[in-house]
Design a protein around this nucleic acid. Sequence first.
DNA 1: ATATTTGACCGCAGATATTATGGATATTGA
DNA 2: TCAATATCCATAATATCTGCGGTCAAATAT
Lengths: 153, 153
Amino acid sequence: MDIDRIDRKILSILQEDGRIANVDLAERIGLSPTSVGERLKRLQREGFVEGYGARLNPQRLGLGLLVFVEVLLDKTTPDNFERFARAVKLAPEVLECHMVAGGFDYLVKARLSDMTAYRRFLGERLLSMPGVRETRTYAVMEEIKRDAPLPVG
Amino acid sequence: MDIDRIDRKILSILQEDGRIANVDLAERIGLSPTSVGERLKRLQREGFVEGYGARLNPQRLGLGLLVFVEVLLDKTTPDNFERFARAVKLAPEVLECHMVAGGFDYLVKARLSDMTAYRRFLGERLLSMPGVRETRTYAVMEEIKRDAPLPVG
DNA sequence: ATATTTGACCGCAGATATTATGGATATTGA
DNA sequence: TCAATATCCATAATATCTGCGGTCAAATAT
């Protein structure tokens, strides 16, 4: 149920290189491929590993603009939150959305091709959603750190 | 050099399941494994795919608290930005950090085990960094959308 | 018109990797 | 002590990847 030093090392390596062959992983760990395979299967079964994904280059795909948008909702009707959440999940430009405690209600992270696309996104997606009262956008000028691995060590 | 419908489908599938066997990927695409393998190799060579990674469950790893921190720097000395960037890259709790245009300088995303760890992080990491003048923290109460795939379609 | 080049695709076979099985060893708790 | 459980390993069968040769069609040159 719990997780030892070896498990953490497995997770750490897999986070960096999710496609490493089990043989090579075992080599780096210092155990046999069979053992490492069994450990990994357990880690997956117990929910530590949710899946695997390719890391794509956003620039290369024409998604050069990263923005964060703070969103404030009307609190008059309580189901606004529900509806906002549902709409956000359907918007492909939105990579993340979190409900936060503090000066606003939601923080949205979105990737777009350029400012034109952003204007369209803001107008046609965000502001057109019912209950949205105010937004503040912060455009990213430089990505200092991007999608770092979770600290499992 | 450019990228057609089939390439996009490959990227889309790999984003969701980065460990899919080439045979199965080819099956879903409707081409032979060899062709798909060649395409994928090209996509990697040309920088569309940067790598692969396991998706871990933060809760399961005891990282239940997600926070966003807005950071303002002293603009008196220009190398503060350099130093801040360097320090942030070394902090394992920081998953993302972006320099933004707008009301503050940096937006930091960090995962921690709990509020105690957050207090330590804020005090010993962020505020102790030279040039940091002000921070505003927003604790995430609910993750509506987390690490959605890039819209390649 | 015809030859040639180019690019995308495919099948096959040797090399490589995964996985299921059985068994050895060590640790734990009754 | 003795059984039960964990972890690990070697082996073998099963599946997968990959390099190579070859086909085909479209574009280009002669």
